[in-house]
Design a binder for these strands. Sequence first.
DNA 1: CCTGTCTGGGATATCGTTATCCTACATACG
DNA 2: CGTATGTAGGATAACGATATCCCAGACAGG
Lengths: 339, 339
Amino acid sequence: MTTQKGYRAPVLADVARAARVSVPTVSRVLNGTKYVAPELAGRVHEAIERLGYRPNGAARSMRSGRRTLVSVFAGATANYGYARTLQGIETAARKAGMSVTITVVESGEDDDVKRAIDLALAQPTAGAIVLEFDRAGINARHMLPDGLPVIVAGGGSRRPGGVPAALIDERTAARKATEYLLRLGHRTVHHIAGPTAGKHSGRTDGWRAALTDAKIPVPAVMNAEWDVTSGFRWGERIAGRDDVTAVLCGNDEIAIGLMRALADRGIHVPRDISVVGFDDQPLVAMWQPSLTTVDQDFEDLGERAFTMLEQLVDGDMTATSSVVVPQLVVRESTAPPRG
Amino acid sequence: MTTQKGYRAPVLADVARAARVSVPTVSRVLNGTKYVAPELAGRVHEAIERLGYRPNGAARSMRSGRRTLVSVFAGATANYGYARTLQGIETAARKAGMSVTITVVESGEDDDVKRAIDLALAQPTAGAIVLEFDRAGINARHMLPDGLPVIVAGGGSRRPGGVPAALIDERTAARKATEYLLRLGHRTVHHIAGPTAGKHSGRTDGWRAALTDAKIPVPAVMNAEWDVTSGFRWGERIAGRDDVTAVLCGNDEIAIGLMRALADRGIHVPRDISVVGFDDQPLVAMWQPSLTTVDQDFEDLGERAFTMLEQLVDGDMTATSSVVVPQLVVRESTAPPRG
DNA sequence: CCTGTCTGGGATATCGTTATCCTACATACG
DNA sequence: CGTATGTAGGATAACGATATCCCAGACAGG
């Protein structure tokens, strides 16, 4: 540890002095913008190595205008879907030589959104990716300054409000899951929804569309949070009803909570009730019974979002929208209804 | 959308002109470093609002030397523990007005580590938090430049190599979990370990210490990855053995995979075999049987790490180490052995 | 031999902000 | 009344890099 009180990080001028060349020459060696004689370049490299020089990103991005920081806005970070999407963004960004900052938008309130944006954009930001799985994300998009390249990543099925987007088509996926349950012979399918992003939740919409198309009256939506406890509580209620034979859950947590509550009350899944989740978290395949769910490739979503942002930042405006339809993974938690 | 081709973000000079004051005065209004006449301050605020001015962070941090970016290095991001720790860091940082960048260190190889560090430190970084749950993190710490404030966050029980650290004492937790199983009457406790961070894994060490103290021969460690599949494979093997009555797993994923494999082979948990996990992910409380596990407060860990880093950056060197011992949460997956 | 083109590299301007210095004026004090 | 003290705000320098300009020398062609 050579950490001293008066330590000052070496700057370009120090390198130039040590290598007995001018400051711009060092810069040219670093950026390869012009030919530099091998002899000088060698001296420069040696000096850089010896002094442990590291370019100052602030100065660099200020003068050159190039920014290498991407801001991600999200309503949460630790949830499975968010975390995986973030992972995809980080991986793609790192390959492209860019860094990622993550800023949580506490709520959809204007104050929280504004604070989050001010904080994030206090850094030299090339562009933003907004994770629109909830209201916080949607409001964040609306309040971002004009002129900043923005990509939306989320669960919609079409691009939101003129902003290019990377999407997972949850609507179609929910529709396919519902149709699958109907094909198994269920008279209807019930739905426990997570907190919706405004009026529209792709998952809920797809479920509703499938029922409507099949000319089946749409049962009341059961509203819940995204956590296991919510699912458990609905399980307690559903256990007392005999009109429910199939449930499409807003996510895997809800499904698992539901199944536990049902099991505690002696209701067998899938014999008595079929359950479908959403997300395909690694754990749910190990459940007893293993969970039929929708496999969402969040990591791919993140990578697509970053790639589009990169194009946008480079001035390639052709980036419009990219939609992937996730697949239903059939496991043990679904079966034809009894009798 | 007023996004035009030739759009240029307003700078301080634009605001100054609009408010008919000098550039430094605008800066003073923004930073409150000196009294400014209310009249002028009002004009400045109005101009800022009208132009949608936003300070350029690069220029700011360059001139003032103040940095508001914290770099987190981690071997992964989407795993439960990493994601929650990150969440804790982000929350604390946001409250303190700082942003967080996350950089994944792909492996412990010098090349990967160096690349990750170069990328992250290309930004104006105030300090770094290294997540030391694996070898990648540990190597990252060693290669960080001198002079950069660094805090380690991880599962050790004492501060690693002179660097201040926020820790979760996994060793003591694993010891307590093992002692609990022994108290239930198990003759010995087996252990499935995740990929260890070098020689020492607190979880494995604590397990070994508990057995040694009880004068029980230490069984061979079963090595696994952190995922459910690893646990499942060990379950297949353990099912054929009758000397295993209690298993301490490196994390919850392994425990769940293990339990599923056992269940598939007609082995009942906890009657035939007791299983203990590590982490207390939200889902595992809903398992059948619900999982006895060690509750690790990762979010708190992240907050502690950030707070310590903040002190370090502010020149307060008194910060040394902060250790929390996580609690065992007893649920349904553990019981006395048969007979 | 003169001129034009190319190449390597130094001198200097510049990015947007904050730190430092300085001036003008008002007020207070001996 | 002269000087010390304080306040408000402008002028200017500086942070660390890159962009631009420019000059010296090498070399080719007429």
